[in-house]
Write a protein that binds this DNA or RNA. Structure first.
Lengths: 137, 137
DNA sequence: GTAATCCCTATTAAATTGATAGGATTAATA
DNA sequence: TATTAATCCTATCAATTTAATAGGGATTAC
C-alpha cells in the first residue's frame, strides 16, 4: 500500500508545479485545495525540502517552491524520499540492501528472483516519469 | 514492503513444488527447511488451501500438496491471496476498487495516473510468472 | 488406541502510520 | 519597531497492522 504520506506528498508536488508563480506556494493553500491535514502536510513538505526537492521561504509571503524544473524531477527520487526503498524486500534493494536472516543463499531464493523482476519493472516506470508528466506542466 | 506472510507463503509453495512425491509435504518439514515459525506457517498454508491453491490431507502421513501443476499457478493469484490487492492504491485496483474520499475527480489525479502505470507493470510480471518459474520445476 | 498431522480461534507484543499539539523562528510591512 | 503570517521543529498519541504464540480440536494411518 502507498502510504498517505507519499500520496499527499505527490499531490502537493503536483500542486506546486501547477501553481508556480511570483510567490512560493503556501502550505495552507495546498492543504485546503487537496484535502490534506495541514499539520501533516507541513511535516511532509519539510521532508521534501530536506531531501533537496523543494526550497522554502519563511515569513510573510513565504511558502514552498521547486528546486528544479518539473521535467527534471524523477519519480525515483521522489518515491525514495517519501516511501523509502522501491524494492519490496531489502535483499533486492539497490539503495538500501540488507541480507535476509532466514535465507542461506539468496541466489537460490525464489522470492528474491521474483522480487528483482518486480523491482526492475517498477523502477522502469519511476525512472521514466517526471513531475512534468504528473502535473501536465 | 512485502509482508512476511507473503514471503513465507511463496517460499512454502516453492518448497512444495520442489518436493512433491508420494506423500504430501508436512508443515514441519517446510518450517524447518525454510526457517519459518511453524505455527505462523500453518495459518498461511491454511489460507492458501482455502483459496484453492493447495490441497491437504490430515492425520499421519498428511500434509499439503499443489492443486495444479506449478506451471499453471500464476503469481497474480498467489499474490492476491497472500498480499492482497496488487495495486498500491484502492482507486486503481482492478479487483478491490475503492474511491478515494479526498479526491474529487480521479481522472485528474496525478497519483492515480502514476499508480495505474505501476500497477500495470507489476501485473505484467505476476501475469507472466508461474510457480514453475520460481521453483525451477 | 495412539501418535502424527492438519484445523481453528483467540490473544498478544511490537511496529508503523496518520494525525495532532504547541510553540520557536523568520521575514515582510505598516 | 510591532504585528502578522508563514515555515520549522519536537513531542505525543490513537488506531491499525503485522508477526508470532498458545492451546487445543478433529482426523487419519497404523
Amino acid at each position: 500500500m502507498l502510504s498517505k504520506k507519499t500520496k499527499y506528498g505527490l499531490k502537493a508536488l503536483t500542486f506546486i508545479a501547477r501553481n508556480e508563480g511570483e510567490n512560493p506556494v503556501r502550505v495552507g493553500e495546498i492543504a485546503e485545495s487537496e484535502n490534506i491535514p495541514q499539520k501533516f502536510l507541513e511535516s511532509i513538505l519539510l521532508t521534501l525540502r530536506k531531501a533537496g526537492l523543494l526550497g522554502s521561504k519563511k515569513g510573510k509571503h513565504g511558502g514552498y517552491y521547486l528546486r528544479k524544473e518539473p521535467a527534471d524531477i524523477l519519480m525515483t527520487d521522489v518515491m525514495r524520499v517519501l516511501e523509502g526503498p522501491i524494492a519490496m524486500v531489502p535483499c533486492v534493494s539497490l539503495n538500501f540492501y540488507e541480507k535476509c536472516d532466514d535465507c542461506p543463499d539468496e541466489h537460490q531464493c525464489s522470492v528474491h528472483k521474483l522480487m528483482i523482476e518486480v523491482r526492475d519493472s517498477t523502477l522502469n516506470v519511476f525512472k521514466n516519469t517526471t513531475l512534468a508528466d504528473l502535473s501536465g506542466v
